[in-house]
């Protein structure tokens, strides 16, 4: 990739702001669009999902993703650090393989298996999201730490830096962009899986979608899907910015 130049950066930031504002406006003011939906679907009554406010649904969705992602990142980065230290290096191949195989498991299937074991509702969905969200974080932490050149580590050791200092001042900053990319994948997958969580009793933005699909009510489906789609896109754009902030000079970003 050629280094991104300023003129290409600007429209993206504008897009992020515009979509972010649109998301907030829709979350707060979806109810104001009721006449529009009524005109669009004259046969559908009610044409606006009212069992729960969209603000509450969005907050519940965000809370689910936020809590699960924070735990995933904490445990995932910790596991990635453990298997790249001398004490845990023996576990590295197994953990890497596990992360790779685990990611071929469909998130919906993982959700479906975990949830009945732990009961229905918020907590089981959370557990499933944490388990699945861990994998990209572990994988990218190991990969990111692996990109740090051995000469750099050697030089740091030669300068008398302790293992902690090397980790904190050299390894983590250099690996940060790849780690953040892993967190981005994890969060985006979790936003999608949390939506499916509404089929197992968690309240999320998927709730109106499922209610609409079951009750044959298209407006419900559109309202839920619009919000959750926007939420995912805005989050992804925000992470893209964050990732770029951590790239040092030469950008290795994949398109």
């Amino acid at each position: 990739m050629t280094p991104r130049t300023m003129p290409r950066l600007a429209p993206r930031s504008v897009l992020l702001i515009v979509l972010g504002v649109l998301l907030v406006a829709l979350v707060v003011g979806m109810e104001q669009l009721a006449p529009l939906f009524r005109a669009w679907f004259p046969d559908q009554n009610p044409a606006m999902y009212e069992r729960e406010s969209f603000l509450n649904l969005t907050l519940a969705h965000v809370a689910l993703v936020l809590v699960s992602s924070l735990i995933s990142v904490g445990v995932g980065v910790g596991a990635g650090l453990f298997v790249t230290r001398p004490a845990g290096r023996e576990f590295a191949p197994l953990v890497s393989t596990l992360a790779a195989i685990g990611q071929t498991f469909p998130p919906a299937a993982v959700l479906a298996i975990v949830v009945p074991l732990a009961g229905f509702g918020f907590v089981p969905t959370l557990v499933a999201l944490i388990l699945y969200g861990l994998l990209p974080v572990v994988q990218n932490t190991v990969a990111g730490l692996g990109t740090v050149p051995p000469q750099t580590l050697e030089a740091a050791r030669g300068n008398g830096m302790s293992a902690w200092q090397i980790l904190w001042h050299i390894e983590l900053p250099l690996a940060m962009r790849v780690i953040v990319a892993g967190v981005r994948v994890s969060v985006i997958i979790n936003i999608g899986t949390a939506t499916i969580g509404s089929t197992v009793g968690a309240t999320t933005l998927g709730t109106p979608i499922i209610a609409g699909l079951v009750g044959n009510n298209l407006p419900y489906v559109i309202q839920g899907a619009l919000l959750v789609g926007l939420l995912a896109i805005v989050t992804d754009l925000a992470f893209e910015r964050l990732e770029r902030r951590f790239s040092f000079g030469a950008s290795g970003a994949t398109p």
Partner: peptide, 26 residues
């Protein structure tokens, strides 16, 4: 075309599956 193409395709990947399925229903 590369930048625009990848941005658009990335949006498809980002939208949660159930939302994309559902948005096509309409």
């Amino acid at each position: 075309v590369r930048g625009t193409l990848f941005s658009v395709l990335n949006v498809f990947q980002t939208i949660p599956s159930i939302a994309l399925f559902a948005l096509l229903v309409a």
